[in-house]
Design a protein around this nucleic acid. Structure first.
Lengths: 368, 368
DNA sequence: CTGAAAGCGCTTACAG
DNA sequence: CTGAAAGCGCTTACAG
């Protein structure tokens, strides 16, 4: 138990921290102060019936005066659920992840739940879950991308303990109830838009790697092309194997430089995210190419930076508010219920926000 | 107590959530399972001396097998501090605020403290602090900009309760221990840089409003100019009174448009943050002005977007890691100590990161 | 209408 | 070396 990830905050029991003698810390002290028994105080606090009005008033006033608050830990111990929900996030950097976290936190707080937020880093230990379990959280949500194997273990552990859980963003873990953006659907929207503009050759910017979210997008792209009788391998080009990534923005620039010198360059580019799209856009422009006259670019996530370029960047919006609302509802409705046998998967429909970075395919390519 | 901001998560006591019968929830159950008394189990968990090796091993193994974790609330109730620290943040949107939150969270977690994160919105109720106090947090930190009056009340309340507290980012609350960027110092660095490049006329982009952080920067600017025998009112120009703000980036564009048509336009612009700086930069450029040949621009916060423009934006770095480290140290060292009589203020030195958006002042202006 | 007692899950003197 | 008992701060049957 000598945890390294969550060591004891203080090795030994210490005397209560020094305090002004007039601070009331327990119903016992408070009861003495107002001149009632602890039972009466407790009943007032919990708004139980059968109390004299005068009693209620006196206790209420005294609470306001002293600022006394009953110890939530003791209340929980007595039988009330902890009203805590654990949130594991991938990091505090990815803007869309942080937004989901923030929205979810707010919705849960509004419903009376305290959220415990911890960063679940790759290679992190079991201590994190142990910590949540020790605090008797009523549910745990994972927000972001995680290693499916590790996540699977954690979910299994939680299931064994009867703790409701939820994964926000598909991590490829079949055992976990999941709410996630319909990334395949997003690609269908993107292809529909670009195909409608006459584009037939597509370049991918950074959509690669061993993530379920990437797999979903590639799969969606494949399906969208097939639907239009186009062959993936002949229509799609990626140069990700050529370069190491060092920051999305710089990576976008690098790829753009590479694509620019390519013979038979695609006319439309689909980026893994907005930073990459913006990087590519700026690099293409600085190489003398005009967007969208010479080529089109689509981002992903619809962040603010999409509006900071000229032209502004067409991007797929994740509908984060809706995602968070669905996640909060799923979590709360799962509390105190037996875990379902089979996990459910809820898909959130994205919305393509069309801006100036996408336009009709240039002649050259259409003729091809 | 029928809180609206923090209503009871469940109105009445409910039976324990359904669970597999084999889930062990208490030391009593666990003790029965391993065949020892609760005392022995507790001693093993707390690594107390005087136990037979075989006993320790058997208990440890059983804990790993069952995944049993002692109830942290009960442990706390028995006398251990809650090991919880409350963090009030202004929002989850301001990138520098989120970064400070993330860093602080990580440092506190590494030291064994659970952080409770809540958004303290303007107009928010006392319930937020009440909630923290009910959970017996050992300290509370406020991160971001808050109404000084409201913040002052909260700090006073915490002081009365003997709860250590800290404000990260100066909110103009004299009663609160504070750790904050030396914003006046930042302006001295900016002025030193621009003055050295020959600039004598400065335009402010969005540095206005009733925030202490703004006041600090204006004050620093004034001092920096005075030091160089320049008069603030004659050297500094702002157009903030002319426009409503709608997003930093767009506001930067608006101001740039306005400044561009101004006779005797300043040669150097100092922005309230990076988004505003980038907005202004792009607008100036699209109006045919060259940066830094025709004018220089300085941002604030040194966010990633500073590197997304051409030229890249010179910006003042907040040194967030250092800030968080100092904040964590201050918080932890205050735990279990009597509150100091007079609050302390710790200043963090910023660092100006010089990039391409600042250069020598154009002739016209120097001659002036 | 109000109070004394039991018990939630722990830990630690105190016995054995 | 191990166990029975007391008590942390609450809430709720159960008496009065």
């Amino acid at each position: 138990m000598a945890g390294d990830a969550f060591p004891q905050a203080q090795p030994n029991f210490v005397s209560r921290s020094p305090k002004p003698p007039d601070v009331i810390r327990s119903t016992a002290e408070f009861a003495r102060y107002v001149g009632f028994s602890r039972s009466v105080v407790s009943r007032v606090i919990n708004q139980q019936p059968g109390l004299r009005k005068a009693t209620i008033e006196r206790v209420t006033r005294a609470m306001a005066e002293t600022g006394f608050t009953p110890n939530a830990h003791a209340v929980h111990l007595r039988g009330k659920p902890s009203a805590m929900i654990g949130l594991c996030v991938e990091n505090f950097i990815t803007p869309s992840g942080v937004s989901k976290l923030a929205e979810l936190q707010e919705l849960l707080a509004a419903r009376g739940y305290t959220t415990l937020i911890e960063v679940d880093r790759p290679g992190g230990s079991r201590k994190l879950i142990e910590h949540f379990l020790a605090l008797r959280v009523q549910a745990i949500a994972f927000i972001g991308h995680f290693d499916p194997a590790v996540l699977g273990e954690r979910i299994a552990w939680l299931r064994r303990n009867g703790v409701p859980n939820l994964v926000v963003d598909h991590s490829g873990c079949a055992e976990a109830p999941t709410v996630t953006l319909d990334r395949a659907g997003a690609m269908e929207q993107v292809v529909a838009h670009l195909h409608g503009l006459g584009h037939r050759q597509f370049g991918l910017l950074g959509i690669s790697g061993a993530f379920q979210t990437v797999a979903d997008r590639i799969e969606g792209l494949r399906a969208a092309l097939a639907k239009r009788r186009m062959d993936f391998d002949r229509c799609v080009r990626a140069l990700d194997h050529l370069h190491a990534r060092a920051g999305h923005f710089e990576y976008g620039r690098t790829l753009a430089r590479e694509f620019a010198r390519l013979r038979g360059r695609p006319t439309a580019f689909i980026a893994v995210n907005d930073e990459t799209a913006v990087g590519a856009l700026l690099e293409f422009q600085s190489l003398g190419l005009s967007v969208p006259r010479d080529l089109s670019i689509v981002g992903f996530n619809n962040q603010t930076i999409c509006q900071m370029t000229r032209p502004q960047v067409t991007s797929s919006d994740q509908q984060i508010e809706r995602t968070a609302r669905v996640a909060a509802d799923l979590l709360i409705s799962a509390l105190g219920r037996p875990l379902p046998r089979t996990p459910t998967m809820r898909l959130i429909e994205p919305q393509l926000v069309v801006r100036g970075s996408t336009g009709p395919a240039p002649r050259r390519a259409v003729r091809r």
